[in-house]
Design a protein around this nucleic acid. Structure first.
Lengths: 218, 218
DNA sequence: GTCTATACGTTGATAGAC
DNA sequence: GTCTATCAACGTATAGAC
């Protein structure tokens, strides 16, 4: 009985271990392929090849391409939320904006495929994340808009439209992931080095902070 | 002979007229469908339906999907160039940047599909416009970088990295076309009105100009 | 859990009547 | 120049042996 249940547990764990590791492998490959070709353009065959598993195996773990895509979008959305939280670590506008911009830039650097999948999804009209946009992004955006307006009323920064500011931050930071190929062409066909990327992050912070009337700090 | 050549000319003109108008119809539909689904995801059938012509007819005018796509990209690139020219209408940095940003914003408003096709193309690694990026975009970018550095050395604006500035302008202005769906979700599910869009343009100019140490003007 | 073989729909492209 | 019918290639998904 003990042996049996131990064996069963081991087997179950083993199964879960295999399942989890294979799902991870496939999800990672899917994020990349979906980022390159979009939902329609991506093929389960290409994803399977990228993951190094037979196509039938992919369908064993994710019965349909749409289910796999939705799982990828869930991951991407959860990472967006993680970066978004860095906005709330302080009540000082300069520190908050600088921290948020830096977090977004770091994310664009470390998870470029996630950013691109998001871009692809929005470009096609965001059918898969429509509810997420309404129930998560919009409330987040409205709360932070209030916060910004509070700072503006307190005279801590220029009376800018929070909407324009957020769009500028999102667009600019995500540009470094989404348009990486174009950027490399303008950089002698090399991706930005760590040094160049750190400098870019600093420049983005500087221009935006000064642009909304905030002193450099933090 | 006169009659014959007149008849032939008329027939030729007629043919050309039909060809041009049908090609235009198909190109317009193609720009839209490619913008929504990317090169791989778009189907010639969907494009033909969008254009209101039989699929076989589309293939009569554009023998392959790739040729059609390249024609669409040519159009998109030529429009990019047109907006880029507004940068050179003056030697005053404030006026030049404001004019360029406004032109890009107007283009994002009037030709959103063009912007999205460009974005889709760069997202997949820009195989179709690779040579264009090297022979047109890069030289343009390097020339204007020199111009900006000249202004900086002359003390007319802050010593910002021209690269970061251009990326910010491109990213932000194109965001209004590429992420229009997301923007509408944050705007009570309505597209930005003309008034809102004018305000957004003004805000983008204001933040960026101030951000690089330029006085408002023009 | 793995993988080969395959069913079955879709897509790009063409043939050939009008 | 237009359009129906068609085909080969490719795509998703599954069956069934291991």
């Amino acid at each position: 009985m003990t042996n049996a249940s131990t064996a069963m547990a081991r087997k179950t764990n083993s199964k879960r271990g295999i399942r989890e590791s294979n799902e991870l492998l496939i999800l990672e490959a899917a994020e990349q392929v979906f980022a390159e070709s979009g939902f329609k353009g991506a093929t389960t065959d290409a994803i399977a090849r990228q993951a190094g598993v037979p196509k039938a195996n992919l369908h064993y773990y994710f019965s349909t391409k749409e289910i796999l895509y939705n799982r990828v979008m869930e991951d991407v959305c959860s990472h967006w939320l993680a970066a978004a939280q860095s906005f709330d670590k302080t009540d000082d506008p300069s520190t908050a904006l600088r921290g948020y911009i830096s977090a977004k830039m770091e994310q664009a650097r470390k998870r470029p495929y996630g950013s691109r999948v998001w871009a692809m999804e929005v470009l096609r009209g965001a059918p898969a994340i429509n509810s997420y946009l309404h129930t998560v992004l919009k409330p987040w955006y409205e709360e932070r808009t209030k916060k910004l307006n509070g700072w503006i009323e307190a005279g801590k920064m220029d009376p800018v439209d929070p909407q324009a500011l957020f769009f500028m931050i999102w667009a600019t930071t995500q540009h470094y992931a989404d348009f990486a190929h174009q950027i490399s062409v303008l950089n002698e066909d090399n991706n930005l080095s760590d040094t160049q990327y750190a400098r870019a992050t600093e420049q983005v912070c500087q221009i935006i902070l000064k642009g909304v009337g905030l002193k450099q700090q933090s």
